[in-house]
Design a protein around this nucleic acid. Structure first.
Length: 609
DNA sequence: GCCGTTTTCGGCCCGACTGTTTTCAGTCG
């Protein structure tokens, strides 16, 4: 788990930067400044960092961080929420922070933040991004040596100045130097790792651990288990009666580049690929509490422990402690939640977004499972930019157990690939018809991923689209349009009579390209009006919609579809990632059209045979 | 600063590991 992951109170000075997705000029009340959720959140993160360096009340600091998390992950524009005077409906936002948000929206800044910034140079809070440098160390270095940048701290460490400070020694000085090196490596290779890349590495490491004779169980936890789109590190857990032998074994694995921490029950290593991997080991009878604790999220755990405290129980990874000091251990997570009278809560929704209240009321959703998915509704073949023949894709999908798929090659109008012309759509249809004879009862739907042109019109004529079984529409070019234009463009396409699904609706490519500048509320409204379906694109670099957007869609009564967007046979394996996003969005099978039998899907699309 | 099926005040999650220390502070998860 990365810095400030589960349970921590430490700073996380740098947050991934989001696009201006949630901002819409014409919705902001007169006189307000254009601010994205991320920009607003950033002010509170910085405020928290500065207060921490000052040594202020840690609960106040945590309140700002919690509010910033809520703001950053809110699926709607905070400016819109503010305009509706609903800010205090958001958990963690009370009168004070609501007032601060209003001030930020009106003036573009926060006076408390501005004043503190005069007191504490911006550079000092950036020192918090160095591993092993927290607020106390940053303050010490700044006040005693006057250092304000990472470069200055690096030089001071190289020249032995840091170890002269009270409380620091030569080891710490070396750790800070190594930390700066790690930070630089991260910045050169900036990104968080894709869920789809981290999962295989975690599985390899787990396979080693499970072979160790003293290991009874091993699982991934943390954000990987919650299936966030990207992860900052990998958290692994093991059950063993001899934990030390397991951490000893772990730090010697071939994947390990460097050992950072190596204790009796925990070890932290850096893999050769630069990813941090943490291992925690406890006895089998404590495995349930270990799993719960390290799955997080941090805020979920805090709420969980508050509920425990209200029942006179203190909870940690070791189990529940009664007030008399006696321990209740839990071998399973079901027992952990059950001890507080709660049903087991799926990891994907442990984000402190209302899951406890829902669980208490017995209203937890029956989340969609991979096995619910009967067909894959987006994939490509050599007819456009895919690497496998249409027949190979179909047979591979059939062999995965699907009842149907949609072949959705690109249309003309997409410059970089050989998109289908009306003529070639008809040729492809003949091949699909032939395949359907061969593969029956498995069914290949003749589909298309048609370009939404810059004005919202589609790149194929109506009669061509009408003859297809399913039409996906998406934006691949002209992506820099302003918010109003882009929103109008997508909404116009949704109103097209032959468009069934908007593919990868927000257009993000994780770590590569920001989301489209789109008013998502307006997209949801258009979906309500037209019945258009929004895709959850399962390819690892898209995962679009993500959980937050999927949940907003479901709450708006909008239907979803799942497609891998596979461009090869191997690409079909991405479906569990898409299902994970759906689960993070609290989706049940009924919310996703391709959990339904083919006839029901065709009826929904008004294309019954 | 937030929050309330004990509370509008007085709480706010809990423990391992490391380094610099002679008993603990800082950082992290």
């Amino acid at each position: 788990m990365r810095k400030n992951g589960v349970g921590g109170g430490a700073a996380a000075p740098h947050r991934p930067h989001f696009s201006g997705l949630f901002l819409c000029k014409h919705e902001v009340p007169e006189g307000n400044i254009l601010m994205t959720n991320q920009e607003i959140a950033q002010i509170f993160y910085e405020l928290a960092d500065m207060l921490e360096v000052k040594g202020e009340n840690r609960f106040r600091i945590n309140a700002y961080r919690k509010a910033a998390d809520q703001i950053a992950s809110h699926p709607r524009s905070i400016a819109d929420v503010a305009a509706e005077e609903k800010l205090q409906d958001i958990p963690g936002i009370g009168k004070g922070i609501a007032g601060s948000i209003t001030e930020i929206l009106e003036t573009g800044q926060l006076d408390d933040h501005r004043k503190l910034r005069q007191e504490i140079p911006a550079g000092v809070t950036t020192l918090l991004s160095i591993p092993d440098v927290g607020p106390k160390t940053a303050k010490l270095i700044w006040e005693s040596l006057g250092l304000k940048t990472i470069d200055e701290v690096e030089f001071a460490a190289q020249t032995g100045q840091l170890q002269k400070l009270k409380g620091l020694g030569p080891k710490t000085e070396q750790n800070i130097l190594a930390g700066i090196e790690r930070l630089r490596a991260r910045q050169a290779e900036p990104t968080r790792v894709l869920l789809g890349d981290a999962l295989p590495l975690a599985e390899r490491l787990l396979a080693y651990l499970r072979e160790h004779p003293a290991v009874q169980r091993a699982d991934a936890a943390g954000s990987l288990r919650r299936r966030t789109s990207t992860v900052g590190d990998i958290d692994l857990l093991a059950a063993s009666d001899d934990p030390r032998s397991v951490t000893d074994f772990f730090v010697e694995l071939p994947e390990v580049g460097r050992v950072h921490i190596h204790g009796d029950t925990k070890a932290t290593v850096i893999s050769h690929t630069g990813l941090q991997v943490d291992l925690y080991v406890l006895s089998p009878e404590q495995y349930g509490s270990l799993l719960q604790h390290f799955t997080g999220s941090k805020q979920h755990n805090i709420e969980f422990r508050e509920i425990a405290l209200a029942q006179g129980l203190s909870f940690s990874e070791h189990g529940f402690k009664r007030e008399d000091g006696s321990l209740i251990t839990c071998e399973t997570e079901e027992a952990v939640y059950g001890t507080l009278g709660l049903p087991w809560i799926p990891p994907e929704i442990r984000e402190a977004q209302g899951e406890f209240a829902t669980a208490r009321d017995g209203r937890l959703p029956q989340l969609i499972e991979v096995s619910d998915v009967r067909g894959d509704l987006q994939m490509h073949s050599t007819w456009s930019d895919g690497r496998a023949e249409l027949g190979e894709m179909a047979r591979a999908a059939r062999d995965k157990g699907y009842a149907y798929i949609a072949i959705t090659d690109h249309s003309q109008g997409l410059g970089i690939v050989q998109g289908l012309t009306p003529e070639r759509v008809r040729e492809q249809r003949a091949e699909i018809d032939q395949l359907n004879v061969e593969l029956a009862p498995f069914r290949v739907l003749a589909g298309i991923e048609v370009e939404i042109r810059v004005d919202g019109s589609l790149a194929l004529p109506n009669d061509v689209l009408e003859a297809l079984d399913i039409v996906l529409a998406s934006v691949h070019s002209g992506m820099r349009q302003d918010r109003e234009t882009m929103t109008h463009r997508v909404v116009t396409a949704m109103h097209h009579p032959h468009v069934d699904i908007i593919a990868h609706p927000t257009g993000r490519l994780i770590n590569q390209r920001e989301r489209l500048n789109l008013n998502f509320d307006a997209v949801l409204q258009a979906a309500q009006e037209t019945g258009a379906i929004l895709e959850i694109n399962a390819s690892a670099e898209r995962l679009d919609l993500d959980g937050e957007h999927a949940r907003a869609a479901i709450e708006a009564g909008v239907l979803l579809s799942l497609g891998t967007d596979a461009h090869s046979v191997g690409g079909l394996d991405a479906m569990p990632l898409g299902v994970a996003m759906a689960r993070r969005g609290w989706a049940e099978a009924k919310h996703v059209i391709n959990t339904r039998p083919l006839d029901d899907v065709l009826e929904l699309l008004n294309r019954t045979d």
